[in-house]
Design a binder for these strands. Structure first.
Length: 562
RNA sequence: GCGAUCGUCGUCCAGUCUGGUCUAGGACACCAGCCUUCCAAGCUGGUAACCCGGGUUCAAAUCCCGGCGAUCGCACCA
């Protein structure tokens, strides 16, 4: 069954449940609320922690990938090197008549005027006004150009000129520390580094609740690999995971019926360029399934050339179908190539290369040139010392290369020919290869996942709400209730509650109202099992355990609860 | 950011057009007590709101202006 629509009312219901029971709500409400900022409540933070735990279990633990926590503020130069200063800064053209804003470069390109990212604001404004570019909305031809930077800017220390940015992604923290991490990880390749933390984007108009935030949480993994040896050894492990993939061709043609393939087939059939990318996509699907989102509500949608981030050679959005918001992107899987490491390497002038020891050392023949001092002295006399000085600053193989190419060496206008050198050919053994690793990056937005998971866990049964959260992520697994609050049942229930709590289980206690009301309350926040203490408990130390989804009850002995 | 629509207890809704009767009402939820031997039962009581600021007026939830926020559309979403 292939569905492309969900009941839109579920979204509203989830949002109001989230607020009512404390998963999440808009922040700063006492001051009228500020767009793009949300607070996670007590249940939301537990859910988030559990989601993160599952993610680590799926993406990091089996492969011994490592995790770091880097600062959320970085100096200007970091995002200059990464390309964010350039591509996060859009030149906005504002129509002076109707006030609508457009991307200045888009408007000009429609007129056939090519501009680059480096084109200054003044020139853009001049071009727009001179070329009579008309406003798509009102037709006016007078423009004002200004830039809008979607990164939050701040100052580091007391100096205005020392600009810093709140990171728009956690990834750069891993790239700038790459060399150190590579060493710490004992130079293993391929290897993965993850970071879980906040990122900030000053969206122009954030909407849709948790879907587009100005401050949000990411779980990102940078998988570094050798582009000449890009086999992923784990493809067989994920062969049973079949993904719905809309490749570039389908997206271009507007075809929404996806291919259904596993990672290996996705690569073989040319949908996905890199094995590691396909592998991460498969893990991503496994991850969302573990969180309770069924595969038919998931798909991977390729980003077309112009839609991709500046660093990406191929990107798939991992999307989940929701009610009101339709398909939402909960993760992006990007092939970042060596874009970031290379940029940081050039900007910082520090090496980002890794060294590979070759299995078979390669023998390379090399020509070396040595000067013949006696000939030089004989023919150049007093000027010899100058010549020796120059020549000694060069290595023998460099001299040989130059002489091969030009036939002469020129030192302070003195031309020295080949005949003053003695050539030697040596065989050198090369046992290493240096390269800048390529990167596959799965990047998850936690808040979006929280929302998607809640929508897909939301059920109604006989006018009651049941949040069928998987055991792995439910904020509480157990609830303990006394059937009634007297005759010692409450004391016994509390005893059991504490026993479970001491064992580290997530458990709540509730003795308020009727037993039915408590079951209902527990169902609504996704408590998996309700343990009820009744009169029989006092006689034979058994309790009833009620399942949240089936409402079935089983009587079991207290000592088998653990 | 622009345009349209909108903003009342935690939630949903009444009241706004036609200013006074609103000390802002109801339902559900929540809290306290009673009751209660398995699925939101019942009884009693309680907490709780006119988005913010300014203006008009004898009088503003109600009319006007500004701000903030929300929804939708446009644009943006690396």
């Amino acid at each position: 069954m292939w569905r492309d629509k969900l009941d839109t009312s579920v979204t509203e219901k989830v949002i109001s449940l989230a607020k009512k029971r404390g998963f999440y709500w808009q922040a700063y409400e006492i001051y009228g609320g500020v767009g793009g900022f949300y607070t996670l409540g007590p249940l939301g933070t537990r859910l988030k922690d559990n989601i993160i735990r599952v993610w680590r279990k799926i993406f990091l633990e089996p492969y011994e990938f490592i995790e770091i926590e880097s600062p959320t503020i970085a100096p200007y130069i970091v995002f200059e090197a990464s390309g964010h200063v350039g591509s996060f800064k859009d030149a906005m053209a504002e129509c002076l008549k109707c006030g609508n804003k457009y991307r200045a470069d888009h408007l000009l390109e429609e007129k056939g005027v090519k501009v680059s990212e480096a084109t200054s604001l003044e020139i853009l404004e001049k071009l727009l006004n001179e070329k009579n570019v008309s406003c798509p909305d009102c037709g006016s031809v007078s423009w004002k150009v200004s830039s809008f930077l979607t990164m939050f800017q701040t100052n580091i220390g007391p100096y205005k000129e020392n600009v810093g940015f709140l990171r728009p992604e956690t990834a750069q923290g891993m790239f700038v520390e790459f060399k150190q991490l590579y060493e710490i990880n004992r130079a293993r390749m391929p290897f993965g580094v993850a970071q879980i933390g906040k990122a900030y984007r000053n969206e122009i108009s954030p909407r849709q609740g948790l879907i587009r935030l100005r401050e949000f949480s990411q779980m990102e993994l940078e998988l570094f690999f050798d582009p000449l040896n890009d086999k992923c050894p784990y493809l067989d492990d994920v062969k049973d995971i079949r993904m719905n993939i809309l490749d570039e061709e389908k997206v271009r043609n507007g075809d929404t019926l996806p291919h259904n393939v596993n990672a290996k087939e996705a690569v073989e059939r040319g949908f996905v360029r890199e094995e590691w990318l396909a592998f991460m996509m498969a893990l991503s699907q496994k991850f969302l399934c573990t969180l309770g989102i069924r595969p038919e509500f998931q798909r991977f949608k390729a980003k077309l050339e112009g839609e991709r981030a500046h660093y990406s050679a191929q990107t798939f959005d991992h999307e989940v179908l929701t009610g009101k918001f339709g398909w939402i992107e909960v993760a992006g899987h990007a092939y970042r190539q060596d874009y970031d490491l290379k940029s940081h390497s050039i900007k910082s002038r520090s090496s980002m290369e890794v060294v590979e020891e070759l299995a078979q050392p390669i023998k390379v023949k090399k020509k070396l040139a040595y000067v013949d001092p006696s000939k030089v002295k004989r023919d150049f006399g007093d000027k010899s010392s100058e010549i020796f000085k120059l020549i000694s600053s060069m290595k023998p193989f460099e001299l040989a290369e130059l002489l091969e190419k030009d036939g002469t060496i020129i030192a302070n206008d003195i031309v020295i020919g080949k005949e003053y050198f003695i050539f030697k050919e040596v065989e050198e053994t090369i046992s290493t290869r240096k390269y800048i690793p390529h990167v596959i990056e799965p990047s998850f937005g936690i808040e979006r996942i929280i929302h998607a998971v809640l929508e897909h866990s939301y059920n109604e049964k006989e006018d009651r709400v049941i949040l069928s959260l998987k055991e792995e992520i439910a904020p509480y697994r157990y609830a303990v209730f006394p059937l009634v609050k007297r005759d010692g049942l409450d004391a016994k229930a509390k005893e059991i509650y504490l026993m479970l709590k001491i064992r580290g289980l997530s458990v709540i206690y509730d003795d308020d109202g009727s037993i039915g009301r408590r079951y209902a309350r527990a169902d609504e926040i996704g408590v998996c099992k309700a343990i009820t203490v009744d009169y029989q408990t006092l006689e034979d130390n058994t309790v009833t355990v009620r399942d949240r989804d089936s409402w079935q009850q089983k009587r079991i002995a207290i000592n088998t609860l653990l």
